[in-house]
Nucleic acid binder design. Structure first.
Lengths: 198, 198
DNA sequence: ATCTTAAACGGACCGCAGTCCGTTTTCATT
DNA sequence: AATGAAAACGGACTGCGGTCCGTTTAAGAT
């Protein structure tokens, strides 16, 4: 499951001890199991995760720093899989389609993925903007596509402006509070994109 | 300070008892004082606010429900003042200027006001999107200006898309993490607006 | 002035995130 | 295999947000 790198010295993370790695895996599994068993991850306490994994409470915090850290680690699996489908999945989300098609596919996929993991993303903290690594990836991807579309202007900030309406609080407001259909939210984002690249 | 309505029955808030009103005011003042005295509002505990105001802890939660509620009440003053300057202040933020000028002035003013109260807004919760009342106001205002500009499309969602980059997490990422100048952030937003209304 | 009652009060109490520190385990070295 | 030091472990402990409930108080009615 967790691959130990063949040349650990090349990675700056200084090699994890065997018991530490075992407990990390056990804790992630325990957390996933508990979230499934109870309804909703906010009802799962850190102590319960520790107990389910058969370790002490201190170990949970040693491994993941905080509740948000644990949630972020949990989120990492799906986020990584999603990133892979953007990097090397089938078009139009993956490479091979025209840039505008890719951008629109990106938006639709991002909306769906974000709404699907909304609770986890919120619990993983940063209160609205996902962790820096995740943000960097999507920002870079959108900048890249905008460059291919030969869009002028301040690309880093323009990319951010296109990404902002795809953040959890905005989508939840639109879909869960205002009751708009996901399809309509996507259509509006696509409209925004077309105006920007025009 | 706190005006009692002449015809209380017309308001659905069922009239506040004198001691309750006194304590509400005392608590807001105490909270403001403590936030000033200590550095940063996250170092101020609810118990400390209660003590500073000379009331019991239960009273704080009775009046404001939660820590977020207290922070939201604190924020309400400046938010209301800002709304007033949009509704009836001098142009171009207030009425009297052409719609595009008003929209651009709105963006600049909103960016500045949001960054100024960023800590409070974050502490007031809803994890990224401000309280519904505040959101409704700005959304309505932007929709209104877009209508005057004869912009077509799904106006409610288009307005949201223009507002999303002005939320706290986005602005803080750009200004505090990436180190962009506020002026540049505003310029990028203005560019976005011009592309959308074109 | 007194009475009634709904509302407000205060502070002990609870649950959970996060810390601390004495004990145990891993693993590289010999 | 023995050893030593760095790392991990566990669970008691702390601090704060939030609740509960017995007591007090405001304010309209008589």
């Amino acid at each position: 499951m967790t691959e130990r790198p063949l040349l650990p010295l090349l990675h700056d993370a200084p090699v994890e001890r065997a018991d530490a790695a075992r407990n990390r895996a056990a804790l992630l599994e325990a957390a996933g199991r508990l979230i499934g068993r109870c309804g909703g991850l906010e009802r799962v306490t850190m102590e319960a995760v520790a107990a389910e994994a058969g370790v002490g409470k201190g170990t949970v915090f040693r491994r993941f720093d905080s509740r948000e850290g644990l949630m972020a680690a949990l989120l990492d699996h799906s986020e990584t899989a999603w990133q892979a489908s953007v990097i090397s999945g089938p078009p139009p989300l993956g490479p091979g389609a025209p840039p505008l098609d890719r951008l629109l596919a990106f938006g639709r996929s991002r909306i769906e993925a974000t709404l699907l993991s909304a609770d986890l993303i919120r619990a993983a903290g940063r209160a609205g903007t996902r962790s820096y690594a995740a943000y960097s990836f999507v920002a870079m991807h959108v900048r890249h596509l905008l460059t291919e579309l030969e869009v002028g202007g301040d690309l880093p900030l323009l990319a951010t402006a296109l990404l902002a309406p795809l953040e959890v609080p905005v989508l939840e407001q639109q879909v869960r509070v205002e009751g708009f259909a996901v399809e309509r939210v996507y259509a509006a984002w696509a409209d925004l994109v077309r105006r920007v690249v025009a």
